[in-house]
Write a protein that binds this DNA or RNA. Structure first.
Length: 286
DNA sequence: TGAATTTGACCATT
DNA sequence: AATGGTCAAATTCA
């Protein structure tokens, strides 16, 4: 291991320590003081990570964090695939509209959150797709900002259950919200980092259960009954399901936000410059 | 009835 | 050719 990698590890350790401090801050006080302090800490964390990436980049080592388990593409760590699946039957001339006229995302920033419960980030999302992903037991759900047509907001997210028994959801955010958040204030105050999971479950009972109740195994024949709308899906509860300790003991008290990883298609540019304040906003916001 | 979701098809990338 | 991301018609929901 080169000395650069050693330095990187030191930086990572420091970042982790700061993250723990931030967690404690948010845990104890959600008032103004807590927010100010957390912002400062988040800044330090980001700077630390930026230094790490920079060091690793210079030493030529490939950066591999806890999220990018497929180190095949260092540019976009949130993509993995293999080969399988069956083709589709040919449909003759049905609709010829040029749908799907899109460009695949290339350089939009993205970051990943792994949670044990489905969280409500206070944004208005609209589901626009669901795909069965190869090598994944559960389908991936695609959401875009409700105000895409409204205000041209380009933010999207993908939510996928990656584990069932200890429930674990992976949310990948893409792009920043450029819209005005027009939600009622009640949900906006909710901070996912608060470990009051009962409150989160309560808050989710209106939005989340309807929005995210399609995390079922990829059995095509299984028809989910949507009659039970009044109660959130059982997996939304589980206040005591401390599944994270299996994965990361130091983050046990993170009840709803176990891990968060900032990814960027252009990491070098992002971190070599000044840390973008918009990123900070989003990081704190979610 | 309008808005949100579902779902198969379409398209870009690999 | 295979796969993931997006579109949009059909369907469901409030």
């Amino acid at each position: 291991m080169s000395s650069g990698n050693k330095k990187a590890i030191e930086e990572l350790a420091r970042g982790k320590e700061l993250a723990i401090q931030l967690r404690d801050l948010l845990d104890k006080s959600l008032g103004d003081e807590g927010l100010v302090g957390s912002e400062d800490l988040v800044m330090k964390i980001l700077k630390s990570f930026a230094n790490t990436l920079s060091i690793l980049r210079n030493s030529g080592g490939d950066f591999d964090d806890e999220v990018s388990q497929n180190p095949r593409n260092s540019n976009m760590g949130w993509d993995g695939r293999k080969s399988e699946d069956s083709g589709e039957s040919i449909k003759s001339s049905k609709q010829k509209d040029r749908r799907g006229c899109y460009k695949r995302r290339k350089c939009a920033e993205s970051w990943i959150r792994d949670t044990s419960t489905l969280i409500d980030d206070g944004r208005a999302w609209r589901k626009y797709g669901q795909k069965v992903i190869l090598n994944a037991k559960y389908p991936r759900n695609y959401y875009r900002c409700t105000h895409k047509v409204d205000q041209g907001c380009q933010a999207t997210k993908q939510v996928q259950m990656i584990e069932d028994n200890p429930p674990k959801y992976r949310t990948t955010y893409n792009g920043h919200h450029t819209c005005k958040n027009l939600l009622k204030g009640s949900q906006l105050i909710l901070d996912p980092t608060s470990n009051d999971s009962s409150m989160i479950s309560f808050a989710n009972s209106n939005l989340t259960n309807k929005q995210e109740n399609s995390f079922f195994p990829s059995f095509p024949s299984v028809k989910q009954e949507s009659k039970e709308d009044h109660l959130p899906s059982d997996i939304t509860y589980n206040p005591s399901s401390s599944s994270e300790y299996l994965l990361s003991p130091e983050l046990t008290t993170f009840d709803s936000s176990a891990q968060m990883t900032v990814l960027s298609a252009d990491q070098a540019d992002l971190i070599s410059g000044v840390v973008d304040s918009v990123d900070l906003e989003d990081l704190l916001d979610f």
